[in-house]
Every structure is written in C-alpha cells, then in structure tokens.
Amino acid sequence: MAAKNSNLSKFKRSRQIWAYIFIMPQAIVFLGLSLYPIIMSYVYSLYSWDGASPLTNFIGFDNYIELFQTSRFWSALLATVIYMIGTTALGVGSSLLLAIVLNANNMKGKAFYRTIYFIPVIATTAIIGVIMKNIFGIDGTVNQLLQYIGLVDQPISWLNTSTLAMLLLILIGTWKNLGINMIYWLSGLQAIPTDLYESAQLDGAGFWKTLFHITLPLLKPILVVILLLSVVSGMNAFDLVKTFTNGNPYHTTETLDLYVFNYAFGGGLTGATTRMGYASAAGVMLGMFTLLISGIFGLISVYTRRKINKETG
C-alpha cells in the first residue's frame, strides 16, 4: 500500500515537473519579449523624452499632471468611451441575431454566408479605413449614389460633421468585428445540447418561446466573454480611426490610442517634435482606463450571476 502510494506520488510529481517544463517556453517568451517593453513604457512616462535623445531628464509625474490639465486628452478619452460603448452595444446584439439565423439546422448555404460576413475581419484595418474614406468622401460613391437617386441635393459631409463621423466610425468598427462575434455566438449556440430543443418542440414551444426560454439563458456565459473582448478592442481603436477620420473634425473623433500615436510619432499637432515620454504617460492612462472598465464589467457579471444563482437556487 505504502509502495503504491509512493509510486503514485512519484508519478504525480513527475507529471508536475513535466507541467512546469511545458509552461516554461511560453513563460520565457512572454517574460523575455513582452514584459520588458511594457515595464519600459511605464518608465518612459516619467521622463521628458523625445524618443531619440538619451533618457536623462527625469521629471516625475509632470507628464501625468500636464495630461490631466489638457482638455484634448479628456475629449480623447470621451471619444474612446463613446466608440467603445457604440461598437459593443451594436456589435454584440446584431451578431447574435446573425448567428441565430446562421445556426438554424436546415439553413442552406451556411458556410457561404459565414464566409461573406467574416471577410471584413480578415482584411487589414488600415486598408479598410482608406477604402471607407474614399467611399464616404464628399465626392465619394455614397454621396454620388444619394444624389443620383435624388435623396439629397448637396453632398453630405460625412467625415466633417462630428456626429456623423463618429457614427460612421462606430458602424464601420462594428462591421469590421461582427464576423468574429458571430463566430463566438455560433460556438455558444452549438454548445447547447440538441435534445433540449427536441424536448422543447415536443412540448409545443415555438421559435420565439424556444429562443427566450432556452437559447438566450444558456448563452449568458459566452455573453460575458464577448462583452469583455468587445470592450477591450473598443478601447484600443487605432488603425481605423487613424486612416478613416484621423481624429477629424477638430479632434472630435480622436481616440486615446490616436492621441498617443500623435505625440509619440507625429509630433503632436504641430508636427514639430516627438514626445515619447508624454505619449507613454497617455498610453499608461489608457491601459488604466481599460483595466478599470473591464473590472467594472467583471464585477457586474459576477454580481448578476450570483443573483441569478440565488433566485434559482
């Protein structure tokens, strides 16, 4: 008995050692190549540094203080939050609708539709921005079409009206990521056992009843995942904003990521010198906000789940 036990624990220990060995490569790659740059951008944020001189001018939290006093920083934060909420609210719901339709068992051409709706996901975002800018330009395809049909006399200035520009940004951002959300939902739907549907049908439940009483409640766990991923990607909107509106009109669509870029590489507004230290501080703040918002989401989901558990149990 004792021998067996020691054999077992030997077996167990060897498994544990192997587990550590298995984790090692990923840990080395991560610690070696990802952690250092992250730490360094925190360090840079404490310096007055143009990105090219030696790192000598330590200024403590001055970059942060300047940041908090700059209204353009706060308006960038606001734009980021609006974009994040817009894309999340729009994307999560509509992708579920699409997934439900494309999950129907007797639906023909599922693979075809899935591919079609997935194409925006695989395209490079920066190129999407360039294309959309041309399509929605004053002389662009959309305006020409509207004028041809006679819906408008004068072309609409899509990109230079702040509400329209932000709306388009949200729509395009949603369009770009809808495919991946659709896949998440589809996988959630396929995880629902088919016998649940069968028994529901035997009970005479129709499409809508099944949807609200079986499908949706079972999708709650994946909803949390999709929400979190949407929030994180919404907070880090850069490529599309840079190439589509570039912050126009008058910084109303400038997101925090673009703000960081403008100071780190574009020399702020003036195109004069780069301010890597200041940009790093803005980057750190963006990270903090993302953490904060994700944290709130996480808490809400834990709280509601507990409440549901209490009610049902």
């Binding site: 587990a19 990270g287 944290g295």
Partner: peptide, 27 residues
C-alpha cells in the same frame, strides 16, 4: 495537471489581457 501555483498562473494569464501594453517599439 494539478500542480502548485496553477491557479496563480491562470490568474496571471487572464490578468495580462488587461495590462496596458507598451507603446514604444524601442525596448
């Protein structure tokens, strides 16, 4: 595999997703 520190590693893996990324390529 159940091994000591597994929960911590899992927590780190999830937590990393929310850590502010580096903004400069120089490091």
């Amino acid at each position: 595999v159940d091994f000591p520190g597994k929960k911590t590693i899992l927590a780190i893996v999830v937590g990393i997703m929310f850590i502010p990324k580096g903004y400069t390529i120089i490091p």
